[in-house]
Amino acid sequence: MTLTEPWRVLAFLVGIIAFVALNAAYLVWLERKVAGHIQGRIGPKEVGPFGLLQPLADGIKLMSKQLLVPKGVDPLLFKVAPLLVLVPAVMSFVTIPFGENLVARNIDIGLLMIFAFASVNVMGLLLGGWGSNNKYAVISAARAVSQNVAYEIPMLITVVTMIMLTSTMNLNEMVIQQGGGILNWHFFANPLMPFAFLIFFVCALAETNRAPFDLGEAESELIAGFHTEYSGMGFGVFFMGEYANIIIGCSLAVILFLGGWQSPFEFLSDQGLWGVFWFLAKVYFLIFCVMWIRWTYPRTTLWGLLNLSWKILIPISLLILLLTGAMIKVWPLITGAS
């Protein structure tokens, strides 16, 4: 089925927004279920079968709440900040390949584009925290930024390693390179890749402000962090942005390391909708891991967090970068291959 260009754009636009909104709603449900089962409870169960209508009720509740703009805030920045978190996240979906042909715009520099938009996210947190004119919000924004700046470096170094390995920044091409079974995934490309994946995943957790790195909203110290002053849908939009960012982080991890929409075994199809199935299955598995980690590990301290990035992750990722470069360029010279 082919659509003409304007209709294709429109279809992707509606599809992506629906995907983000539905995921935000149902990932909250999933999070509560996972948290419940990990803590020996059963999570939401009253509204609908298995509590499946709970997100709907939550949404109605959030939307019917009054949007308070407290005195003394910067009204413009206060209102714009949630959008600054959500909109770039939605933009990033433009270039994510959900299936072999299911990508809104197959941009040559897609990987770079996602990081460009992800960097705007921090701006939203900062302006929201500052605009709230609230001590807790300002402290939280300062924390969130120092954390994001620190973890962007090992993440980008890891990504540069992957770009060296694939010599492309086109996400779909990266996935195509990983075809033909689980052993061709970049996760197994060389012995260093599992470590690179681990670094990328930890950085993704930190970049999206997820526990155990959610210093920005440590509720025991900072009430609710940068969104302390937000009520109703203002808070809801922050939350949607957070979940959208988690999906993007996990999608990137899947595309870079775990073969994107490629099926794990050659005898299983990855054509058409099967590709979408494999992609989403991997992404949701990673999202489940994110939740699993959140409800298993306690929050770190700010010092521990920054030390982990500057003293452990950055040197290791630099080492991986160097060794991968050596493997690509020097190894063939020694062995005389190619």
Binding site: I107, L112, A116, A118, A141, S146, V149
Partner: peptide
């Protein structure tokens, strides 16, 4: 597009964030 993306990444994502951070 490459320059455009770099503009976003460096100027919005790094320079502006650094300025706001310093002000804060």
């Amino acid at each position: 597009p490459f320059v455009a993306v770099m503009e976003m990444l460096i100027y919005v994502g790094a320079v502006c964030v650094t300025i706001v951070f310093a002000i804060m």
